[in-house]
Amino acid sequence: MIIEVATENKKIAVDGITIDCVIFGFNKESLEVLLVQHAEGESIGKWGLLGGWLQKEESSDDAAQRILYELTSMDNIYLEQLKAFTNPKRVVERRVVTIGYYTLINREDYNIKASLTVREAKWHKINDIPDLIFDHNEILEFSLVHLQNRVRQAPIGFNLLPEKFTLLQLMHLYEEILGIELEKSNFRRKILHMKLLVGLDEKQQDVSHRAAKLYKFDSEIYKKLTQKGFNFEF
């Protein structure tokens, strides 16, 4: 698919548009990203984000969903569009523009199955990312910064936790995403003051240490609070 982009003096030929998806997951202790190792083509054997070509008859949103399903069998995943990455040197000898997407999921909710077009689909810790194809390291870094900003402004981090969690698990999640160390008592006081969590009459099971109280995030309370002008700011 060749696309011509008009400028003031000339037209620039674009060989095609691709979609690249950054899938963040939280594995109890670590923030991770899902990567695939290519099994064919010019990038065979190399690691990259989940990506593919935008087809003529589909929107970028539809393409992102299709690509995720084709590569990993993941279906109906909420994806947020980041931006277009347009550096003319991002792909050697071709002019390819890519549209980036990202999402956050709870790893335990999905069974990842790598397709035949990739050797492996594997979770990598965010601090242990290999050298990726094209500009995928740059796209991943942009996504992480975007995530860090978003998690301070909206309670989207709860998507990475099980339905029932401890305050310590929640704090560790924020530490992983933001890359900082938080003070336990201050975090506890601030998060409970928001009144977004429902304390349960349950505690952790099968743990070697003292069992901690479990909480859950109440989306309905959050919705009602925002209608009254509540501003989530962490």
Score class of each variant (00 low, 15 high):
97 V>T: 12
92 V>H: 12
178 L>A: 07
175 E>V: 00
72 T>S: 11
211 A>K: 14
79 L>N: 06
152 R>K: 15
134 F>P: 00
188 R>C: 06
123 W>M: 03
176 E>H: 03
111 N>P: 05
170 L>T: 00
124 H>T: 02
207 V>T: 12
87 N>I: 04
203 K>M: 07
183 E>Y: 06
112 I>Y: 05
97 V>W: 10
158 F>C: 04
148 Q>P: 01
212 A>Q: 15
148 Q>F: 02
119 R>D: 15
106 N>C: 10
173 L>K: 00
77 I>V: 12
149 N>Y: 11
159 N>V: 05
99 I>H: 08
160 L>Y: 00
205 Q>V: 14
110 Y>F: 13
127 N>C: 01
170 L>K: 01
202 E>V: 04
205 Q>R: 14
126 I>L: 05
139 I>K: 11
156 I>E: 03
183 E>Q: 11
140 L>H: 03
104 L>D: 04
153 Q>H: 10
183 E>F: 05
76 N>S: 15
135 D>N: 13
163 E>K: 08
193 H>Y: 09
191 I>T: 08
151 V>L: 06
84 A>F: 13
125 K>G: 01
122 K>W: 01
177 I>C: 06
192 L>P: 02
74 M>P: 03
125 K>Y: 02
135 D>H: 13
98 T>S: 14
111 N>E: 15
166 T>K: 00
83 K>Y: 13
169 Q>D: 01
191 I>R: 07
178 L>D: 04
129 I>E: 03
175 E>H: 01
126 I>G: 01
135 D>Y: 15
130 P>W: 05
90 R>W: 07
110 Y>E: 07
154 A>F: 14
103 T>Y: 12
105 I>Y: 07
145 V>G: 00
111 N>L: 14
119 R>W: 08
172 H>C: 02
123 W>N: 01
76 N>E: 15
98 T>Q: 09
75 D>Q: 15
151 V>H: 00
206 D>M: 10
112 I>R: 08
203 K>Y: 13
173 L>D: 00
170 L>P: 01
135 D>K: 10
189 R>T: 13
82 L>R: 10
94 R>I: 07
211 A>D: 11
145 V>S: 09
156 I>M: 06
155 P>Q: 09
83 K>D: 15
140 L>I: 10
190 K>S: 10
78 Y>H: 15
83 K>S: 15
134 F>M: 09
138 E>P: 02
166 T>I: 01
134 F>R: 08
77 I>Y: 06
174 Y>L: 08
144 L>N: 04
97 V>S: 04
103 T>N: 11
127 N>K: 09
106 N>H: 14
174 Y>V: 04
120 E>D: 11
122 K>Y: 03
139 I>D: 08
164 K>P: 00
191 I>N: 05
109 D>K: 15
209 H>G: 09
129 I>M: 02
124 H>A: 05
135 D>E: 11
94 R>C: 04
76 N>R: 14
141 E>I: 11
183 E>T: 08
180 I>W: 03
145 V>L: 10
99 I>N: 06
91 V>W: 05
80 E>V: 12
117 T>Q: 13
181 E>F: 01
191 I>S: 03
82 L>K: 10
153 Q>I: 02
188 R>W: 04
201 D>T: 08
209 H>M: 12
215 Y>K: 02
188 R>Y: 10
88 P>K: 03
118 V>H: 02
150 R>Y: 03
86 T>E: 10
185 S>R: 13
